[in-house]
């Protein structure tokens, strides 16, 4: 069970870290000063969640490790995030819609995890949940603002949806390790999370007059460490100092 929880904690942590890392790229480049502050705030929360879940992984690890070792010394095949979170930051519409999809995912996942049979996981999920609610109310409001305003903004949102939609089913994939955790009520049934996720997001897309694309490449691979080309660049950037000067304190 420890090994399963270790793997699942990595899935959560890697998802939050890659999201936070991409959002941080907006710092100093946002469309408004207020949004600059908001985007970095969300980024900061997500990196905080990553640190928390890496600590959970460490506590369930068979070997001695630290959150920083897990973040900075693993290579692409060891990262467990779904592919959507490593995609480049894109424009503000793309960032906003991606954030919305992940916020809804986090909301329902953390709500269920906060009643997990594992007390530590439940407590961490509860803490993250409080912040995720704010993230969602912000990203949802921006989805509406952008989709229901000018033609240009609506087009950009539609384009973002066309590009992102087929990355979303991967969020709910499971493997044998996760299934054991589901059986033990450590984690919820991901199929049920997918159902509520779909209801909620499809309602918003309809309200926003956005049309779901019909065909696209269906993303998969994060759970087995098969990633896009983008993650390698992200890690090269993020891990540079730790790799170039191994074993130092910072």
């Amino acid at each position: 069970m420890n090994q399963d929880l270790y793997q699942f904690a990595l899935r959560l942590a890697d998802t939050s870290l890659t999201m936070g890392q991409r959002l941080a790229e907006w710092c100093g480049h946002g469309p408004y000063l207020e949004e600059d502050v908001a985007l970095t705030n969300v980024s900061l929360d997500l990196i905080g969640h990553a640190q928390m879940f890496y600590q959970l992984a460490c506590d369930n690890s068979e070997t001695s490790t630290s959150p920083d070792d897990l973040a900075f010394l693993r290579d692409v095949p060891e990262y467990r995030n779904p592919l959507i979170t490593e995609l480049p930051r894109g424009d503000f519409a793309y960032t906003t819609l991606k954030q919305y999809f992940i916020d809804v995912y986090h909301l329902h996942l953390y709500q269920q995890l906060s009643v997990s049979s594992d007390e530590q996981l439940a407590a961490l999920a509860q803490k993250a949940l409080m912040e995720v609610k704010y993230h969602l109310s912000r990203s949802e409001a921006w989805c509406q603002r952008l989709s229901l305003s000018t033609e240009e903004a609506h087009e950009k949102m539609q384009k973002a949806l066309d590009d992102l939609w087929f990355y979303t089913p991967e969020l709910f994939e499971t493997d044998e390790s996760m299934q054991r955790l589901m059986t033990a009520s450590v984690i919820p049934d991901m199929g049920a999370i997918q159902t509520v996720w779909q209801q909620q997001t499809e309602q918003l897309l309809e309200d926003c007059q956005l049309a779901k694309p019909e065909n696209g490449w269906m993303a998969t691979g994060g759970l087995v460490g098969e990633h896009t080309e983008h993650l390698g660049y992200m890690l090269a950037d993020m891990q540079f100092l730790q790799r170039a000067y191994p074993g130092c304190e910072w």
Partner: peptide, 29 residues
């Protein structure tokens, strides 16, 4: 924000990354 923002994605630890993000965010504030 720019010269410091330059190192947010490359900060050498999670703690340093969070401190730097919070700091650059303060500057925007």
């Amino acid at each position: 924000q720019l010269p410091e923002g330059n190192w947010i994605t490359r900060a050498p630890s999670l703690k340093r990354k969070m401190i730097l993000l919070a700091k650059v965010q303060d500057e925007a504030g």
